[in-house]
């Protein structure tokens, strides 16, 4: 670097900053990596630790309603109290296990339904011409422009006893008494599938749009009928998209609270509602936190399994 160059470099406002950071052992690349790490730390790890701390505390009537974990006694002793009773309690009550299983059942079935609906839609979008494709993609994303809560309330208007669906069916004469649709499991499935469908369509679309026509033509050329081509070529190649979309639907659906609370019946047993009850009705923050911790842990494993499956798939595709 010539003297002129370094002078020119110095005149740039960020050169000073860069040198300062370099002195602290930080390169530009380091910063690029550090930013998301910092984000995860501040918005994921720290809250998680706070919740863990509450989960390991004892319930007391105070503000906040749990006992401090670390205490200095007057004698200068440091007392750290870890209370695993909350977790013990969760495992001793079949209710919680049932709620977890219920959540997983709702999430799994919803994910499957969403996949069955989203796949043909994503396929259609991926196979249509550029202009149509953009319009269709816009239509998929459009509902996000209105509040999620508003859309769920709209479903209440559709499904309730004297709601749109019943009124239409009755006026046409297909039914005589309104069908009870609201406050049923059906409504919950409908709500979850409706809400999360775009999260299924978009990764599937992103995958299917990369699928080359050549491969499908080669398959046909080698004697495969269209359905066989779908089974042997399209489906296996879109597995990464299926996995990504399924994760994006399944994971939030497991912890879903709003949809079962608004559309579900009282017997719609999902962990999100149990969590709400523990926190608000029962004001048992430690137990509520334990429920949340177990949910996170229970979800991390399937995510890890699915991720590694996805990695293997991508490895294969190479």
């Amino acid at each position: 670097m010539t003297l002129m160059d370094s002078l020119a470099a110095d005149s740039r406002p960020w050169a000073f900053l860069r040198r300062l950071l370099a002195k602290a052992g930080l390169s530009g690349r380091g910063l690029v990596i550090a930013a998301p790490m910092l984000w995860l730390l501040v918005f994921f790890l720290v809250p998680f630790l706070v919740v863990t701390k509450i989960a390991l505390s004892e319930l007391v009537i105070a503000s906040p309603p749990y006992a401090p974990m670390i205490e200095w006694t007057k004698g200068g002793e440091l007392i750290v109290k870890l209370n695993f009773g909350n977790f013990q309690f969760l495992f001793s009550e079949p209710l919680y296990l049932n709620a977890y299983l219920g959540s997983i059942k709702f999430a799994a079935i919803s994910t499957l339904i969403a996949l069955l609906i989203a796949y043909p839609m994503a396929y259609l979008i991926a196979r249509s011409g550029e202009r149509t494709r953009n319009v269709l993609l816009m239509l998929v994303i459009l509902p996000f422009w209105t509040s999620f809560l508003l859309r769920v309330y709209a479903w209440i208007g559709f499904l309730k006893g004297n709601g749109v669906v019943n009124n239409v069916l009755m006026s046409v004469g297909i039914i005589h008494d309104p069908i009870v649709m609201l406050q049923t499991d059906f409504a919950v499935y409908l709500g979850i599938v409706y809400t999360y469908l775009p999260f299924m369509i978009l990764p599937l679309y992103a995958n299917l749009v990369k699928l080359e026509d050549d491969l499908l033509e080669a398959s046909a050329d080698l004697g495969a009928r269209p359905f066989m081509t779908f089974l042997t070529i399209t489906l296996p190649l879109s597995l990464p998209g299926i996995i990504a979309g399924s994760m994006l639907v399944f994971i939030p659906a497991v912890g879903e609270f709003v949809i079962p609370a608004l559309l579900g019946g009282p017997d719609t047993l999902m962990i999100g509602r149990i969590l709400w009850d523990e926190f608000f009705s029962n004001r048992d923050w430690p137990v509520a936190s334990s429920v949340a911790i177990i949910m996170v842990v229970a979800l991390v494993f399937p995510i890890m399994i699915m991720r590694s499956a996805q990695d293997r798939m991508e490895e294969k595709a190479k």
Partner: peptide
Amino acid sequence: PVNMMFQSYALFPH
């Protein structure tokens, strides 16, 4: 009764 060899080869990657 015809087969084709594609310019891209179109080998099934999986």
